[in-house]
Write a protein that binds this DNA or RNA. Structure first.
Lengths: 333, 333
DNA sequence: AGACTTCCCGCACAGGCGTGCAACACCTGG
DNA sequence: CCAGGTGTTGCACGCCTGTGCGGGAAGTCT
């Protein structure tokens, strides 16, 4: 079965196909009488303009790709949902590509998007090869990255270093002295920045940081990191900065249930992202808020500017994460 | 800037546009020599076939819509991600529409999908009006629903009633006697089925069920429900079946932290979905596993059958949730 | 060498649509 | 009654593709 076409509507309304087209084109010249006839016929047949053909004609598909690995997890899930909402409001059609983070998979995703003439690509994870940007550029397709600083592409980034430094200073001011950082081996650039800045700030004050890492950047990683830190029961940390909230949850659970530590009295914990779970009564996690709606809006703004001015220099939108104090660290001893 | 077109490739390769088209059409007749020339030129220009135009021509866009409200939350997030992956593997392009659940928003989403000639729509939440199905039918666009039983549409559904009955019987067999159900006021059909079946099974055994509800079906709802159940401290439940895992987490946190109950000794809890958080050490929730990958596959199978046979009777794929025993209820007292 | 088959290639059309252009109808003013 | 202006309509073209069809080149067989 085929979709209803303008031709069919025209025949039924007894007018030319142009009349139908004009009826559905804002600003075109149609008499009220024929518009009425056309609308009536369209209603009866259930017609809607074919945006694909329209897209072929004036070279704008309205499609925008969102590329993410494991888009169901943590902060990325919120970012994905926010992007979908913002894009739709703007009249775009968001395509969700759930992909691995290998280069091949990213390139396959891009092929698909370029094939469908997507007007832009928004990348939430993975590090595309240079050829990726080259191909996008050749086809005039803007690429916006979120959460990582690609010098050659527009991107939205959070003030990871500033926030991490702030976490270190807050711990120090509260009199904490035995520091740890819980991260992951497959760290994204954002997470690396957090680690580096936190370690630097603590060391600048004359203390050391034990770094523990799990495999990914999820709950299990926090569990693994916690058990590493527990190895020597005589030397437990009293302040842990976690690369993100999920890691913090895993770490808190282990530290409380297996090491018997009280949070925040024995152990202060700060996370990153402020996912909704951070407000759960069991965690009440002090963390840095990243607002997915704001980040999504900024990404779309970058995209709009790039479409308006394709040859401008790569642009950066900075978002400042604000610390949200809850019970896992109250800012004093 | 425009995308690279076959015309440009043809000129560069010194062949006709047809030759380019044939080079990228599997099974078409091209000599190795020209194919080589074309591929070379295409490589240089960064050309990819325009799937939009291809779609207009043979009337298949490869687009598939995923319609969901709050696709970042709980089980839906996993379902969304799984659908994206399965659809991509099948060569489709998944469109994620994050919409409200009012009829207007659903209809707007449908307009967008029909406008872009999406080959099918998969609905994860919300109850579309009859006109929705009518319009889809007129345009030959299959609609698959997940999680709710729409008698006139293909759908994937879990054995909610069977599982809920099983939960009741398990509580009974373990000697629990003071039952409660934690649900929500804005319940989906799936959640309603769980409530109804659980209450019926418990009452059939001669006991009663206190039903507590929050506003939505998330963590906060569990918190609200728990506080309702705590109102009379002399009459606390010893077994609660929760409409989903998120509700269970909220309820457990309140019951432990505010009522001082021990899980599972004082209070047994069973959830539904088996989201990853259910395995977190703090919860170790006994729950009914729904595999998002399986459900996504089934949905796509329905879709394939419908495309192959548009006029067949509405079809149903049933998925059986399996109970996963963890620590929140071990099946004995 | 000539006839016949095989293989490719290019032309032209189709599939939806938007839009410039010219024609046409209609109305107004003198 | 006629000139001129205004508003609407249909024709035809273009966007980018896949493909049937006819023709030409090349290869094979006698």
């Amino acid at each position: 079965m085929r979709f209803v076409s303008a031709e069919q509507v025209a025949r039924r309304a007894g007018v030319s196909r142009s009349a139908v087209s004009r009826t559905f084109t804002p600003g075109a010249s149609v008499s009220p009488a024929t518009r009425e006839k056309v609308m009536h016929a369209a209603q009866e047949l259930g017609y809607h303009v074919n945006d694909l053909a329209r897209g072929v004609l004036n070279n704008q598909s309205r499609l925008v790709g969102i590329v993410a690995t494991r888009p169901e997890v943590g902060f990325r899930a919120h970012l994905t949902a926010a992007l979908s909402k913002v894009l739709i409001k703007r009249g775009n059609v968001p395509i969700l590509i759930n992909t691995g983070q290998t280069e091949e998979e990213l390139v396959a995703a891009q092929k698909m998007l370029i094939g469908h003439r997507a007007e832009a690509t928004i990348i939430l994870s993975g590090s595309p090869p240079a050829s990726f940007f080259e191909l996008a550029r050749r086809n005039g397709q803007p690429v916006v990255m979120i959460g990582r600083s690609e010098p050659d592409a527009d991107h939205v980034r959070a003030g990871n270093s500033e926030a991490s430094q702030q976490a270190a200073l807050a711990f120090l001011a509260a009199g904490r002295r035995r520091f740890a950082f819980a991260g992951s081996h497959s760290a994204t650039p954002a997470i690396l920045e957090r680690e580096t800045a936190f370690v630097a700030a603590v060391e600048a004050a004359g203390f050391t940081v034990r770094v523990a890492r799990g495999r990914d950047s999820d709950y299990d990683s926090g569990v693994v990191a916690a058990r590493q830190l527990m190895a020597d029961r005589e030397d437990l940390p009293d302040a842990v900065f976690c690369a993100n909230d999920l890691i913090a949850f895993g770490l808190m659970d282990v530290m409380r249930l297996e090491a018997g530590l009280a949070v925040p009295d024995d152990l202060a914990v700060i996370g990153f992202d402020d996912v909704p779970e951070a407000a759960w009564l069991n965690y009440r996690l002090t963390t840095f808020r990243q607002d997915p709606d704001v980040m999504a809006r900024r990404a779309v703004e970058l995209l709009e500017r790039r479409l308006a001015n394709p040859d401008a220099e790569p642009d950066v939108e900075r978002v400042i994460p604000l610390i949200v104090y809850r019970d896992s660290f109250r800012g004093k001893m």
